[in-house]
Design a protein around this nucleic acid. Structure first.
Lengths: 227, 227
DNA sequence: CCGATTTATGACCTGTGGGTCAGAAATCGC
DNA sequence: GCGATTTCTGACCCACAGGTCATAAATCGG
C-alpha cells in the first residue's frame, strides 16, 4: 500500500476557498490562489472536488440546510408552544399576558438563531448576493428569499385571520420588510470582523416591528409592564 | 464631407445594453450580443463607448444622481415644511394633528418618489446587486446603501432627541430596516414586468413602521381618524 | 532495494470574450 | 466619376483562468 493522502487537505482547501470567496466572490476566487494558500498545487484541488462550483455547492447546501432547519424549528417550536400553553389570542396581545410574553421571547430566540446561522455563513451569503452569473447559483439566494418571504407572508396572514395582527397591510409587503431587513443585516455582517450582539438585534427588531417607531408613551398604558 | 454617423446608434446601444445587463449582469452581457441586437457590428460599440464598463458607468451615474436628488429633495422638502408649518412635536404625533398628517403625507410622497426612481433603474440596480467583481462597481451599491443607512440613522436620531420617535432602538438598526426593506423591494422589482402600486407600498410601509404590526384596536382611540 | 500503487505536481491545452485595426463602405465637394 | 474623409465591419489578437494529464514523488509489501 502506497502513498497516503494528506488527511486534512480537504478541509484546508475548504477554509482557503471560503476566504477567497469572501474576498472576490465565486468568479474572483482563483483555484491557484486557493491551493497556494494551502501549500498545494492546482491539480490537487481536483483530487478533492469536481470543480470550483462543486465546492461552493457543498457550502451552499450546508447553508440552505441550516436556514431550512431554522424554519422547521420555528414551526415546530410554535406548534409545541400552542400545545403546552394553548393558543394566543388578541386579548393576550392586548393585555401582554405572561403567555404572550413567553411567545415573544420564543420568537426573539428563533430570530436570533437565524441571525446566528447567517453570521456563520456570511461568506457564503456574500457570494450568493453577488450572484456570479453563469453559475448554477445565479438565482439561488433569490429563490431562498422568495421562500422566506412567502413563509413570513403566510404566518402573517394566519395571524391576521386570528386578529392578532393589523389587517390593513398585505402579507407580501410585511414579508419583504422582515426578509429585507434580515438580508441587509446579513450583507452588512459580511464586512464585519467582530460578531455583533445578535440577541439585541433580534429583540430590538421585534419590538420595532411589533410596536412601531412611535414613542412608547403613546401606547395605551396597559401595554407596558417592564420590571 | 463624408459618411454620416447613425444618429440613434448610441441610444439604441444603451437600450440594448440595458436589456442584456438585465439578462446576465455586467459580466454576462457580451458586447457582440448588444451590437447584434442593434444590427451593428462589434467595432461600432467602441465608436460610442470607451468600454462596456464605461457604458454601465454612465447608467450608474444617472441612477446615483437620481437617488441623490431624492435625498436632497427630502431634506429640502422637510426644511420648507418646518418653515411653513412650524416644527412638529410629540403632541402633534400623539394627537394626529392636521400638521402631522400633512407631514406623513409628504413623507409618503417622498418615499414613493424613491420607489419610482428604483423602478426606472431596476435593471441597473439588479446589476449592482449582483456586483460583478473585478469591476469598479464591485462595492458601488453597498456604498450607496451605507450612505442611505446613515442618512436614515441620523434623521431617526434627530427625531429621538425631539421625542417624536421611540428611544429604545439604535438608529443604525432602524436604518437597516428601512434601507433593507426598500432594497429588497427594489430587487424584487427586477423580476416584475408590470409596475406595482408604489404609492400603496409607500403608504402601507409608512403605517407599518410607524404604528407596528399589532392590531389597530390596541392603539389609543385618539389615534385613528379615517374618513 | 525493488517495483507496485496511489498521491501530488505544474506545464500545457482550451474556450471565452474584451479590445484592435486594416480595409471596405458610404457620402460628400468638385 | 473621383478622391477625400469619416463611418463601420469583422477577422484577428491576446490575456485569463478552468481544467487535463504525463510525469514525479511518496509509501508500502516482500
Amino acid at each position: 500500500m502506497p502513498r497516503h493522502a494528506d488527511p486534512n487537505a480537504k478541509e484546508a482547501l475548504v477554509a482557503a476557498a471560503r476566504a477567497e470567496f469572501a474576498r472576490g466572490g465565486l468568479r474572483g476566487a482563483r483555484i491557484e490562489d486557493i491551493t497556494a494558500a494551502c501549500g498545494l498545487s492546482k491539480g490537487a484541488f481536483y483530487l478533492h472536488f469536481e470543480s470550483k462550483e462543486a465546492l461552493f455547492g457543498e457550502l451552499v447546501q450546508l447553508f440552505q440546510a441550516r436556514m431550512s432547519a431554522c424554519a422547521t424549528d420555528r414551526t415546530e417550536s410554535f406548534r409545541k408552544f400552542a400545545e403546552e400553553h394553548g393558543p394566543v389570542g388578541p386579548r393576550d396581545v392586548q393585555e401582554r399576558t405572561p403567555r404572550y410574553q413567553e411567545l415573544v421571547a420564543l420568537d426573539v430566540r428563533l430570530d436570533e438563531a437565524a441571525l446566528e446561522a447567517m453570521w456563520e455563513y456570511r461568506d457564503v451569503l456574500g457570494v450568493l448576493v453577488r450572484g456570479s452569473q453563469g453559475t448554477p447559483f445565479e438565482g439561488a439566494l433569490w429563490e431562498l428569499v422568495d421562500v422566506e418571504v412567502n413563509r413570513v407572508r403566510k404566518s402573517f396572514e394566519d395571524l391576521q385571520c386570528q386578529r392578532t395582527c393589523r389587517t390593513d397591510i398585505p402579507g407580501e409587503l410585511f414579508g419583504s420588510l422582515i426578509v429585507g431587513t434580515y438580508l441587509l443585516l446579513g450583507i452588512r455582517m459580511t464586512r464585519m470582523y467582530d460578531k455583533p450582539d445578535l440577541a439585541a438585534w433580534a429583540a430590538q427588531l421585534h419590538t420595532l416591528i411589533n410596536e412601531g417607531s412611535q414613542p412608547v408613551d403613546f401606547k395605551n398604558s396597559v401595554a407596558r409592564s417592564k420590571p
